[in-house]
Design a protein around this nucleic acid. Sequence first.
RNA 1: CGAGGGGAAUGGACGGUCGCGCAGAAAUGUGAGGAAAGUCCGGGCUCCGCAGAGCAGGAUAACGGCUAACGGCCGCCGAGGGUGACCUUAAGGGAAAGUGCAACAGAGAGAUACCGCCUGCAUUUUGCAGGUAAGGGUGGAAAGGCGAGGUAAGAGCUCACCGGCAUAACGGAGACGUCUAUGCCCUGUAAACCCUAUCCGGAGCAACACCGAAGGAAGUGGCUUGCUCGGCCCAUACUUCGACGGGUGGCACGAGCAAAGAAGCAAUUCUUUGCCUAGACAGAUGACCGUCUUCAAAGACAGAACCCGGCUUACAGUUCCGCUCGCAUU
RNA 2: GUGGGUAUGGCGCAGUUGGUUAGCGCGUCAGGUUGUGGCCCUGAAGGCCGUCGGUUCGAAUCCGACUAUCCACC
Length: 117
Amino acid sequence: MTRPATLNANSDFRRAYARGKVYTNPALVSYVRKNRAGICRIGITASKKIGNAVQRNRARRVIRAAAEMLPEFKSGYDVVFVARTKTVFKKSTEIRAVMEQQMISAGVIAPGEPQES
RNA sequence: CGAGGGGAAUGGACGGUCGCGCAGAAAUGUGAGGAAAGUCCGGGCUCCGCAGAGCAGGAUAACGGCUAACGGCCGCCGAGGGUGACCUUAAGGGAAAGUGCAACAGAGAGAUACCGCCUGCAUUUUGCAGGUAAGGGUGGAAAGGCGAGGUAAGAGCUCACCGGCAUAACGGAGACGUCUAUGCCCUGUAAACCCUAUCCGGAGCAACACCGAAGGAAGUGGCUUGCUCGGCCCAUACUUCGACGGGUGGCACGAGCAAAGAAGCAAUUCUUUGCCUAGACAGAUGACCGUCUUCAAAGACAGAACCCGGCUUACAGUUCCGCUCGCAUU
RNA sequence: GUGGGUAUGGCGCAGUUGGUUAGCGCGUCAGGUUGUGGCCCUGAAGGCCGUCGGUUCGAAUCCGACUAUCCACC
């Protein structure tokens, strides 16, 4: 998928945490919520618990690279990916497998679609 | 061969595919560090204010130099540590301006008489008065140390020697050193108050300027450093709400980088030539693969946020150049 | 970016113009009391005062560097 629109506002993140569906894994946590904008937006967070600035940047980049390897998301969803401590030590291909499974469960991507990469 | 000490460098290299920030019409170019970190100092820049003055407050502390400046660096002296190479230096102004403190122990902590010694009086063991800091004991520290003279016993009371401090002379650019002379109010503490010398206006790029919003609403005299004096603007001013909001600039050509030469022990400075090398605003570097180096292929510490000079702290592995000590051999 | 605070037994806190041996409450352990438990009484253990270094005769206290954590402002 191409690089989508990003979530910026704190209120959007709070809405996703409060009302979205949660999918957890030791390497990645995903919050999915429908929006009314008609487009798909993605937010990535890496808290101070992850580590220093290098490790937080690394976690964000790995998650972004994993998302770009997946097929196009259905429009009308806000997706928030939260990095965890183990995300830093994973490769993007490992994150992609976890993310694909979570997105299929959420119905954001259809199962069995051919992968772009 | 073993042990150690100093200085310098590197922080995998090259290439391919997909993707990202910035510049560009496009092709394409370019894209994190030695510490970008901590924010401990110093400066540039911007605004406030302004002929500003004083007090308060803060910082620094041998000497000479470098620098835009510094609490930094270089050189050098003193002190301390090490057999040595070398290292540390908040230990490096003033205790002889003044004040304070020195618990416990001890008789007594710049002030003294517990034991002791000596003298006198009373006198039986002893008691009282005076003198005394040589000896005992306490303590981290006890009148600078030690010897002689001297004395009733003693005492820098006097003298010689030694240490410390101050002044003078000589050498040195200076800190300082040397020997000599003279004097001495010779415990420690100034990371206790303090004194001396030097320096410091305040705030920070979320500064600041402009555009837009609605020149909308409410309130009040306000600004100038903590205080005082002095000064400035006066309702077109200031504060709050609107508004933890939007956009543009500030924003990268700079105390810049590289090479060569010159001055200097060095820090550093000068001259010439060449180069342009991140600029985001929720924030750009990721994924996969090949070759080489390697036992092994990335696995150290770590991500610019206005910009520089330092300091401090973190750091896997590797390389290079001097030096010291010990043992052995020639 | 700027400024400030805190760190002391398992927990919550005192103690900082330097002084001998660092206290308090709760908790823990042992004993007593009770038919048993609680309450209560008695006693004990548990601290290199966040780390490293310095000043001093002597540092939880003063000074410097570092670490962790909390807070405020623009």
